[in-house]
Design a protein around this nucleic acid. Structure first.
Length: 652
RNA sequence: CGGGGCGUGGCGCAGCUUGGUAGCGCGGGUGCUUUGGGAGCACUAGGUCGCAGGUUCGAAUCCUGUCGCCCCGACCA
């Protein structure tokens, strides 16, 4: 017999004792199916935005998921631990993340203790674990190690959403590995990849592993595990042959061929002026003059804000038929300017509101929006003329000591553009672009003609339908996904910042290599519901169901039914089956509806056939039914359950 | 934070335009009938109409402020 991951072997319960409250109507607060069902079926209750109570049924689900995670992590040799959630600011200051995580859009709840010391409530544990590693790991002989915990994380999300999907308090498994060299890191990373695939499969989830952006955590390679579902917040792009899959934030592809301008190549051209009054969009321009979007270079103006208060204007050139990928842009900008200006805090389109809120003196009237060319003169960023009354009327009011929107560092506008161009734009020999003057464009311009030599960058968003790099015959297909896991190769970023060093074989002191590996346990539970439900309710995979079987007494007035059901309940329970007995004096219909809603994988109905010892067995997913003698139920269920406990195939 | 919406018994909602008695369905309790797909009848309990000001003889309703919640964007497991 295959070992069950369950921590509840034999645990049983009566529905009348379960504090179960199911709702007939969809709660107004929920939008997506899984959130509605978890509320309706009595799994969760909201306490405040993004803060939920896990009711007894859900707690069992979470415990079962945790048990699977624990088994698979332990099988890789990882060590379970439990780290503090209250973390001193000093630690985060050393890693350089305190300001970014607490100020402004920062995500860390923080507080001051009675001694005036600042503390943060852990949103993640790189700082704590790296400090411990610095203390405990001294020699290559101790390496590699992988340490994990399953515990509540706190994140003051900008927008909590969809119940457990994006909570401000949620349960996460996080693991951190330490290595003497990069190869060892890669081995553990690969082992985690495999362990994660097993975990999700055992939980009964259909997942896809995708290349991912590393984001704020930092580091090089990273991969996300997505539960495919309509309600997913992420867009996945994958090839049909299964060889390439990536988060759209990260995805690469071959752009569609550009159509050359009809008059042929005009290398070195500066472009013929074209009068285009009122034609400020690509559609208008193409509609009026018969251009194709791929013959245009569009130019976007954005502002990048840095921790030191510098505000850098960005001038981005893209081929007219392409879209900007803001994640790629942010990574590019951060790579170039973070060393000088500190963390990149935000990139926003240049708008009058933004200019005003940052109190930057910039006269937007000098900028010919809708007619921008890649060679737009830095002079448009010159200090605003004194007569520009806009700022003057507002700033004296907001300025004196109200401190409202003012950030720690005073915003200063850099007076020259950072010009970046996507390769699709750079590759155009001749193109149409704005004339940098209202109501005019240029036809047949070229990069050399404009006096520019842009470096071809990847700033474009890959799209569904694009051809793949690994095989141009393959196209990218789009799907939505819920991120339930993410693994990173961190490298030495944190170990260097926090002084986590060891002595290598040659007696030389060096920084540890690190990896980190997360699973959103509570999110996973809801993602499972998102993937396994029907119009009547949840259909839990056996491995993570709160109970495996529910025995329903159709009519509690019938002594024969009660006795048979009680006997079955005791027998199953004694046999190690997690069984729920619906002993409530409700009508049968109510109990059937509730059983469907809460989604117990198997239902045994003790009803009319009780007198002759016959009961009905119903599988929740698919509702297949069969009649059988009560004394055959245990054997039958044990066969069926052993399959599910081991992790049933995700697709039936 | 910007944009949109909503706060009325435990849950889902009406009432607000045009100020005057707080209402419906579900749920809870009691009784009778019913008893294999959210039963019927009767009785019953339960509401500071988010909160605070204001206008008015009178505010759920009008005005101002404020708090909370949900949805769309930036963040992420």
């Amino acid at each position: 017999m295959i070992a069950s991951a369950t921590v509840f072997a034999g645990a049983s319960m009566r529905v009348s004792r379960l504090m179960l409250v199911t709702l007939r109507d969809d709660p107004a607060e929920a939008e997506i199916p899984s959130h509605k069902l978890l509320l309706r079926a009595g799994y969760i209750r909201r306490l405040s935005s993004g803060i939920y109570a896990y009711l007894p049924l859900l707690w069992r689900v979470l415990q079962k998921i945790s048990a699977i995670v624990r088994q698979e992590m332990d099988a890789t040799g990882a060590l379970e631990t439990l780290l503090p959630q209250l973390q001193p600011a000093e630690l985060w200051e050393r890693s350089g993340r305190w300001a970014g995580y607490t100020a402004g859009e920062g995500i860390m709840f923080h507080l001051t203790d009675r001694q005036g010391r600042e503390l943060g409530l852990g949103p993640t544990h790189e700082e704590v674990i790296t400090t411990l590693a610095a203390d405990l790991l001294r020699s290559y002989r101790q390496l590699p190690v992988n340490i994990y915990q399953i515990q509540t994380k706190f994140r003051d999300e900008i927008r909590p959403r969809f119940g457990l999907m994006r909570g401000r308090e949620f349960i996460m498994k996080d693991a951190y590995s330490f290595h003497g060299d990069e190869d060892s890191l890669k081995q553990t990373y690969a082992a985690m990849d495999l362990a994660y695939r097993r975990i999700f499969e055992r939980c009964g989830l259909r997942t896809v592993a995708v290349e991912a952006d590393s984001g704020a955590i930092g580091g090089s390679a990273s991969q996300e595990f997505m539960v495919t579902a309509e309600a997913g917040e992420d867009l996945i792009l994958a090839s049909a042959d299964g060889r390439y899959a990536a988060n759209q934030e990260r995805a690469v592809s071959l752009p569609p061929e550009a159509l050359p301008l009809p008059a042929g190549p005009r290398a070195g051209g500066v472009g013929e002026p074209l009068s285009t009054p009122g034609q400020t969009t690509i559609e208008q321009l193409c509609g009026a003059h018969g251009f194709e979007p791929s013959q245009l270079v569009k130019v976007l103006l954005l502002l990048a804000r840095f921790a030191d208060g510098q505000v850098q204007p960005l001038l981005i050139s893209l081929r007219g038929d392409q879209q900007l990928n803001e994640v790629k842009l942010a990574n590019t900008v951060a790579a170039r300017l973070t060393p000088a200006h500190g963390a990149l805090l935000a990139i926003d389109p240049l708008t009058p509101e933004l200019v005003r809120s940052e109190q930057l003196s910039l006269d937007l009237r000098g900028i010919p929006f809708g007619y921008l060319g890649p060679d737009l003169d830095d002079a448009v960023l010159a200090k605003a003329p004194e007569e520009m009354g806009l700022d003057r009327s507002e700033s004296p009011v907001g300025a004196p000591g109200d401190g409202g929107a003012s950030s720690s560092a005073e915003a200063r506008l850099v007076r020259s553009f950072l010009r970046l161009a996507d390769a699709t734009a750079v590759d155009l020999v001749a193109f149409v672009c704005g004339a940098n003057a209202v109501d005019g464009h240029r036809v047949g311009a070229s990069w050399t003609g404009l006096g520019l030599r842009p470096e071809p960058l990847d700033l474009r968003a890959a799209q569904s339908g694009d051809r793949c790099l690994h095989d141009p015959d393959q196209c990218l297909q789009a799907a939505r996904g819920i991120e339930v896991g993410h693994i990173f190769q961190l490298g030495r970023k944190y170990s260097e910042a926090l002084g986590a060093r060891f002595t290598n074989e040659s007696g030389v002191d060096e920084a540890l290599w690190m990896g980190c590996y997360g699973i959103g346990v509570s999110r996973l539970a809801q993602a499972a519901v998102e993937q396994h439900h029907d119009r009547d309710g949840i259909c839990w995979p056996v491995a993570i169901a709160p109970f495996e079987v529910i025995v329903v007494i159709a009519n509690t007035q019938e002594q024969a039914q009660v006795e048979l059901a009680e006997g079955l309940y005791n027998e199953l329970s004694a046999a190690g089956v997690e069984v729920l007995l619906d002993d409530r004096s409700e009508r049968a219909g109510v109990k059937f509806k509730d059983a469907d809603l809460i989604g117990i994988p198997w239902r045994v109905v003790v009803g009319r056939g009780a007198a002759t010892g016959q009961v009905e067995l119903v599988r929740r997913a698919g509702s297949e039914k069969c009649e059988l003698p009560a004394n055959a139920v245990r054997a039958r269920l044990e066969t069926e359950l052993s399959r599910g406990r081991a992790g049933e195939p995700a697709v039936r």
